[in-house]
Design a protein around this nucleic acid. Structure first.
Length: 494
RNA sequence: GGUCCCAUCGUCUAGUGGCCUAGGACGUGGCCCUCUCAAGGCUAAAACACGGGUUCGACUCCCGUUGGGACCGCCA
């Protein structure tokens, strides 16, 4: 008795297990919209201790490339969206789809269509011009087939030019989609047209493969952009034709550009890896993306763990969101501030190389680099900015910003810089505390404001007028470079 | 054009019929802090698209209007 109850429970848990998938088409890089979809799938699976599957929908062999598959994987890895199964490729499963299609043909649920692409296009244009619905008229639905053609197709002999296969869509009644986000959405079946499931070259199309794979992979929840909402009733009928259970659907609102149209290159960087290159931290991008459509009260910054524990469709909004790069930049700056300097020291290395501040493979004292980074964290919004600021710590020499040079390296400051140089030269322990003492003594002696001394020094050391506090700056730059740069500034000042 | 979705500050959002004199965040302005720049603190301006209902009471529920978006492919 007890045993059977235990067995039953396990069964329930097993069948109720959350299995979700991200199914990108490798016709481009992983972009912001796709990443958000992947993220929500990932969060839902992690929240429910389910399974996250990566499936590559590459049935459009003319547009899909291996390079893009790699690019998508690279993007997911960078964002930290790890998957449990896959990546599966649909091109490796063509036989499976074909056998499913054959089943439908044999059962009279699908049929061959001989209309050419050109004819179809012409009819579409005509319908458009007349203002009629752009729907396939079903003219091949009940056409008698030449004996033998179907047989060759069923046997997979690869006979070409015999037409595409269309799914016979029910034309009566209505279909209800119970969406986890949108609620109940009703479609009139008369609006649905007989879509092509096999092209005339025998390859399967999206609406067939998506259903077959979601069934085969036992997907429990289909989480995708709401641009797919209109496809859902059609897919439901394909599930029905095969006699399969309908999974749960959750259609995410779109991400729009500033002009409120679908996000595209026109709106700036859309590729996820472009954000890597611009010096963003993956956690910041993830945090930004999740807040596009999802919220948890007033909280803005979430750790990954918090996201996983709090995530739920109940808090996903229905309205499309405009992508706002400024808020993402702010979030990135917050993540940089809250990062461990040692971690930033690792992350900034490629950017130092790219900015030609260090050579490829050149090593830096990590402890020293970390101390330098501590002074820069709250001043850099991206890793690129961080790298650029690190320049005056790392490089042997510095270049003056013209405006700064003119304003601060002049006759008046030359005296002060000279006196400071002498004073600092005799400081044995070149620490913040000792440096500060020297500055204070000079300020007091001359009866000047600290700024009158600090700003010329800042220009001498960094070349510009913006930097961390002057004492910490000098300590980390070190005595030797400080003295040499002061000497150079004294020579420069006129 | 047809179908579907959506509608709170410029933007992201909180709000699940009384807690709303509509809250937070980004951005913008001001002030404070201050050796510069930041960061931080305080502060200001800024929204319930409109019109009807339902209700003792609507940002919240219903209907309509308007506006926006998506889809309508032998793309996914």
């Amino acid at each position: 008795m007890t045993e059977s109850i235990v067995g039953f429970d396990e069964e329930v848990i097993l069948t109720d297990k959350v299995r979700v998938r991200f199914a990108p088409s490798p016709t481009g890089h992983l972009h912001i919209g796709g990443a958000r979809t992947a993220l929500f799938n990932w969060l839902y699976s992690r929240h429910n201790k389910g399974t996250f599957i990566l499936r590559i929908e590459d049935t459009d062999t003319t547009r899909s490339t291996d390079e893009y598959i790699e690019a998508i994987i690279e993007g997911m890895k960078w964002l930290g969206l790890d998957w449990d199964e896959g990546p599966f490729r649909q091109t490796e499963r063509f036989d499976v789809y074909r056998s499913y299609a054959d089943k439908l043909i044999q059962e009279g649920k699908a049929y061959y269509c001989n209309c050419s692409a050109e004819e179809l296009e012409a009819r579409r244009k005509e319908a458009m011009a007349k203002g009629l619905p752009l729907k396939y008229d079903g003219r091949c639905r009940n056409k008698e087939r030449v004996q033998g053609v179907e047989d060759s197709r069923v046997q997979g002999s690869g006979s070409k030019g015999q037409g595409a296969v269309r799914f016979k869509m029910p034309q009566e009644g209505r279909t209800v989609v119970n969406d986890l986000i949108k609620g109940e959405v009703v479609f009139e079946n008369t609006q649905l047209d007989d879509l092509i499931i096999l092209r005339s070259d025998g390859t399967p199309t999206y609406n067939l493969t998506v259903v077959v794979d979601d069934v085969d992979m036992k997907i429990s929840h289909i989480i995708r952009g709401d641009d797919h909402l209109n496809n859902t009733p059609k897919q439901i009928h394909i599930y029905n034709a095969f006699g399969y259970d309908i999974p749960k659907f959750a259609h995410l609102p779109m991400i729009l550009g500033a002009d409120k149209t679908r996000l595209s290159k026109r709106h700036g960087a859309t590729s996820v890896m472009a954000y890597y290159e611009m010096g963003y931290l993956p956690e910041a991008l993830m945090n930004y993306l999740v807040r596009l459509g999802w919220s948890h009260g007033d909280q803005e910054i979430f750790s990954k763990e918090e996201l996983v524990t709090h995530f739920s469709f109940e808090n996903v909004g229905k309205a499309a969101a405009v992508f706002n790069p400024e808020k993402l930049l702010w979030l990135n700056s917050q993540y940089i501030i809250n990062s461990k300097p040692e971690e930033l020291a690792e992350l900034v290395m490629p950017f130092l190389v790219k900015a030609e501040i260090i050579d490829e493979g050149q090593a830096l004292d990590k402890a020293w680099l970390s101390r330098a980074i501590v002074t820069l964290q709250e001043r850099a919004k991206t890793l690129i900015e961080l790298a650029n600021s690190l320049r005056y710590y790392i490089s042997e020499d510095i270049e003056y910003i013209e405006k700064a040079k003119v304003k601060f390296l002049n006759e008046k400051s030359r005296e002060l810089l000279g006196e400071l140089k002498d004073a600092l030269s005799s400081v044995a322990d070149f620490s913040m505390q000792e440096i500060e003492k020297v500055f204070h003594d000079m300020v007091e002696k001359h009866g000047i404001k600290l700024g009158a001394l600090a700003q010329p020094v800042r220009v001498a050391i960094t070349g510009g007028t913006e930097s961390p506090g002057i004492y910490e700056l000098l300590e980390i730059v070190g005595k030797e470079k400080t003295i040499s740069r002061l000497e150079k500034a004294i020579k420069t000042a006129v």
